[in-house]
Computed example of a mutant assay.
Amino acid sequence: MSFFKPKTEAVAPRKAPWAEKYRPRSLGDVASQEMVVETLKKTLQSANLPHMLFYGPPGTGKTSTILALAKDLFGPELSKSRVLELNASDERGINVVREKIKNFARTVVTTPPASAAQNYPCPPFKIIILDEADSMTQDAQAALRRTMETYSKVTRFCLVCNYVTRIIDPLASRCSKFRFKPLDETNALERLQYICQQEEIAANDEVLSRLLIVAGGDLRKAITLLQSASGLAMGSPITVGMVDELAGRVPDAVIDSLVNSISKGIYKDIQQTVDDICLEGFPAAGIVTQLHDKILTDPGYNDNAKSVVSAALSEADKRLNDGADEQIEILNVAYHMVNVLKV
């Protein structure tokens, strides 16, 4: 089973971003989230929708699912007036809750057109979608709680987030929670294969698997990278090298050379290797991530070595996010790893 079932899919114009072009158009198109879809289909039958909280990793279909649900409830035309979608990471302050959200929530629901009423449930309420709700400030979330209670007769809220722990408890307790699980490689791979067929792209399974690896399980990111790679290939087969280049992935040979220098334990050689890597312009964050994946999945290193490496890499990641010098941090990580990786 693929992540999206293509049989009822409405294809957008060719120039549209593929992540939007192949977005599911109804709940029936969404797969790989069986429990969520089954529950939402039951709510369609009763047209009695609760406030909802969708959470899970990025690229797993959270926003696509609520948009598909809205279209199944109201139809493509009525949903334009009945649904308000906001990205809470951009509009996250308390003033947005007091003005934009509250004004839409209090609006009276009009009678649906006869054509929509005949084909869709068209329940007597509106839907407000707050994408990336975990970026909202604490004050904004507290203000939203009261708005949800006051206008619950005519408005339903759907909060979409990656980290459910960042939603305050009083707000989360007012919502039915739906967890979106990470996509398994089989479903995601089938979806990429389907897109390649539709767009007439030459890409083997090795390339598609690398797309999923560099995307970190985010199918939306993988589809976007696939579109970029197809433009770079210009009709030729897409290669793994193209994918790595577009994703900014550090070549495996570079990571191997750094680990080999560390294993020898010669500080002058380590510094020279780090200098060469930094001169090539490879991102320090990518080096940290790929060192983590290489060391921790290698059975040749014992648990003590892996724990020391993990601690050094986590500290480096935090410092890099705080704006530390990339070359100094990579050197620092390398010197910490010498004691446990030296042959």
Rank of each mutant, 00 (worst) to 15 (best):
S2V: 13
K5R: 00
K5P: 05
K7L: 09
A10E: 13
A10N: 14
V11E: 01
A12M: 09
K15S: 10
P17T: 09
A19W: 09
K21M: 05
P24N: 01
L27V: 12
G28K: 14
Q33V: 04
E34L: 10
V36L: 15
E38I: 09
T39S: 08
L40E: 09
L40S: 06
L40I: 11
K41W: 14
K42W: 12
L49C: 08
L53I: 11
P57Q: 07
P57N: 03
P58W: 01
T60H: 11
I66F: 00
L69T: 00
F74R: 05
P76K: 03
E77K: 08
E77N: 07
E77I: 09
S79W: 09
V83Q: 03
L84E: 10
N87Q: 00
A88E: 00
S89P: 00
D90I: 07
R92I: 08
R92P: 05
I94Q: 04
V97K: 02
V97P: 04
K100T: 12
N103E: 15
Q118V: 10
N119L: 05
N119G: 01
Y120M: 06
C122Q: 01
K126N: 01
K126Q: 05
I127A: 05
A133I: 02
M136L: 07
A140C: 14
A140G: 14
A142M: 10
A142D: 10
R145S: 13
T150G: 01
T150R: 06
T150P: 06
K153E: 14
T165D: 01
T165V: 00
I168K: 05
A172M: 09
F178H: 10
L183V: 06
T186E: 15
E190Y: 05
C196S: 04
Q198V: 10
A203G: 03
E206D: 11
L208Q: 02
S209F: 11
L211A: 03
L212R: 04
T224F: 06
Q227I: 07
S228I: 00
L232H: 13
L232T: 13
M234Y: 12
P237T: 08
D244M: 09
V250F: 04
D252Y: 08
D252H: 07
A253H: 14
V254D: 00
S257N: 10
S263K: 15
I266G: 02
I266A: 01
Y267V: 12
Y267T: 12
D269H: 13
V274N: 07
V274G: 03
I277T: 09
A284D: 00
I287Y: 07
D293K: 14
L296G: 15
T297S: 15
D298S: 03
P299E: 07
G300Q: 15
D303R: 15
D303L: 15
A305P: 08
K306W: 06
S307A: 14
S307T: 13
A311W: 12
A311M: 11
D322S: 14
A324F: 06
D325V: 10
E326G: 07
I328A: 15
I330V: 04
L331E: 04
L331K: 04
A334I: 11
Y335L: 08
H336P: 06
M337V: 04
L341N: 13
K342N: 12
V343E: 13
